[in-house]
């Protein structure tokens, strides 16, 4: 290892002593920035006062969202109805089959 001059040695010691403080200061700054980002999200909804202009039209998005949810519900109810019809059909077929099987057994 090369010999260090007293000035260089003092500088190195100073850097070593200061580095944890600098690292802590940087971390504090990051935490502060992160805190600001967290504060940036919505925390309340307020009613509009007066006329406003929209950059992205919300109407079609709103109609789309409600239409999709209602369509999903209707489709699921139709699926349940279809399932019920299929089960009723299967039950009728099973009853007929069993009745025919019972008649054959009686004979």
């Amino acid at each position: 290892m090369p010999e260090l001059r007293p000035t260089q040695r003092s500088l190195l010691v100073a850097c070593l002593l200061l580095s944890p403080t600098l690292a802590q200061a940087q971390q504090d700054q990051q935490d502060q920035q992160g805190g600001d980002a967290a504060e940036g999200r919505s925390t309340e909804f307020r009613a509009v006062e007066g006329a406003t202009e929209e950059d992205v039209p919300g109407g079609p998005l709103l109609v789309g969202a409600y239409a999709v949810i209602l369509a999903l519900l209707v489709l699921y109810v139709l699926r349940l109805s279809g399932l019920q019809r299929r089960l009723a059909g299967d039950l009728g077929r099973l009853e007929r089959t069993l009745a025919a099987g019972g008649d054959a057994a009686d004979r």
Binding site: F45, R46, V48, E49, L61, L62
Partner: peptide, 10 residues
């Protein structure tokens, strides 16, 4: 809603 407009109704 004040900031989002009608889309907030979602």
């Amino acid at each position: 809603e004040q900031q989002m407009g009608v889309v907030q109704k979602i």
